[in-house]
Design a protein around this nucleic acid. Structure first.
Length: 418
DNA sequence: TCTGGGGTCCTAGGACCC
DNA sequence: TCTGGGGTCCTAGGACCC
């Protein structure tokens, strides 16, 4: 019998900020998206005040100014580091951990010498808190979708923050409490459709015939149905095989000039290139997109290019990005966002350079990139960079309320006063 | 006035090939 | 009057996730 635990960090970004700034504990706090545009994480107190996920900042600005709500710009370096610590703790607990997102992981529990899973869940929760300061909720169940559901209930109704759904147990009481739009795998569109048919809860959903779900919600809807009925239908992640790297940003202020866009795009290519080398992939294609317009009337331009051979060499990627941007750029428009995608990834270790590529050239490119990455790791991001990235700064996003890089920058380490 | 960023998978349709 | 069928690859768009 399969058994999964879902460990889900509570209000992850807001919790991370609290770890290094305890004076924020118990206060209404929100974390803002990259451009201080909207709310992406809320402390329980902020939730209670009625602040919504995704709410635009301008709607709550007054509260912040009046000192009724604390707001911070997203500090993804900090969150990434704390996420790594949480995951390491989980790896120390269970032999098979599937990191599902920055703040969630599935633990595969079958075969473990555990008898009391309720207690085991509490043990996980306490250990993560003790090692990292991050509060989590734990749901344990025979399928991943039910584990998700259990976590949902655990966060809302369990004092302990732990819910265990035993195999064979009648779990309909849980599913009746789970609104259909909060089922993992049923998003905005399908839940609207389902509600129009009178299906309001996860429990209602489990009563629908399979062929109906298959017809209207395709294979993924069917998987969700089976999982909610207690039958595992979502395959284990194979892991490690990513397909793309995306880097994109909304600009601090809209830009019109080609050079401004180009500066942004070449910066994004450098950043994505670094990540790609770090994870040891080659890209076989690159896309560039630029967009703007209003919220209700947006425009979007995008084009791709197949690279002449798989590469992780930033100058080659930058050349291709430049050609694409020249093709899609139109004068006289206000651009608010740009981005690039490195696609068709292949793992470096699985790739042999074609015979006609002179080895000497490959070696030189590699050592140049290694040198650049090494310097930037050692002396901080942007110690060396490609000239095109710094032609213009107009596009830079705005982060007025940034907390410090407590864990990843020597200069910003917290100081303990004795 | 002001609405993030980074991913995955599935499906339908067209191009192209034999 | 007759007008194949099957496979593959690519792309765009839509759905979902955090």
């Amino acid at each position: 019998m399969k058994l999964f635990a879902l460990v889900d960090c509570n209000n992850f970004y807001a919790s991370c900020e609290t770890v290094f700034n305890p004076s924020l504990r118990g206060k209404p706090l929100v974390v803002l998206s990259n451009n201080d545009g909207c709310v992406i994480s809320r402390s329980p107190e902020a939730k209670r005040m009625g602040i919504k996920m995704g709410q635009p900042f301008f709607e709550i600005k007054k509260l912040v100014e009046d000192g009724k709500l604390f707001a911070l710009s997203a500090n993804f370096t900090l969150y990434g580091d704390l996420s790594r610590r949480v995951m390491e703790t989980l790896f120390s607990i269970s032999p098979k951990v599937e990191v599902y997102s920055i703040d969630e992981a599935f633990l595969y529990l079958e075969g473990l010498p555990v008898t009391d899973y309720e207690k085991y869940g509490k043990f996980i929760k306490e250990k993560v808190y003790r090692w990292t300061g991050i509060p989590v909720a734990v749901g344990i169940a025979p399928t991943k979708t039910l584990a998700k559901a259990a976590t949902y209930i655990a966060k809302r109704e369990s004092e302990e923050g732990v819910i265990y759904i035993a195999p064979g147990e009648d779990f309909s009481t849980y599913l009746k409490k789970l609104p259909v739009e909060d089922v993992w795998g049923i998003g905005r569109n399908y839940s609207k459709f389902l509600k129009s048919k009178g299906i309001k809860t996860a429990y209602d959903f489990t009563l629908i015939p399979e062929d109906w779900v298959g017809r209207y919600m395709k294979i993924n809807g069917l998987r969700t149905l089976l999982e909610l009925r207690g039958k595992p239908a979502i395959p284990a992640e194979t892991g490690g095989n990513r397909h793309s790297f995306i880097t994109s940003r909304t600009f601090g202020t809209p830009v019109e000039k080609f050079e401004d866009l180009w500066s942004a795009v070449s910066t994004f290519v450098s950043l994505a290139g670094e990540r790609m080398r770090e994870e040891e992939y080659y890209a076989t294609s690159i896309s560039v997109f630029i967009s703007g317009g209003t919220f209700s009337n947006p425009f979007f331009m995008q084009e791709s290019e197949i690279l002449s051979s798989p590469t992780d060499f930033t100058p080659e990627l930058i050349d291709a990005a430049r050609r694409i941007l020249e093709r899609i750029f139109k004068k006289g428009k206000e651009y608010k966002k740009a981005g690039i995608l490195l696609g068709g990834l292949i793992m470096k270790k699985n790739f042999q350079f074609e015979l006609f590529t002179p080895t000497e050239v490959v070696r030189k490119k590699e050592s140049l990139m290694e040198a650049v990455d090494r310097i930037n790791t050692r002396y901080g991001k942007d110690a060396v960079y490609f000239a095109s990235s710094k032609i213009s700064f107009r596009w830079h996003s705005v982060q007025k309320k940034l907390s410090r890089k407590f864990t990843t920058s020597w200069a910003e380490l917290p100081v303990v006063k004795g």
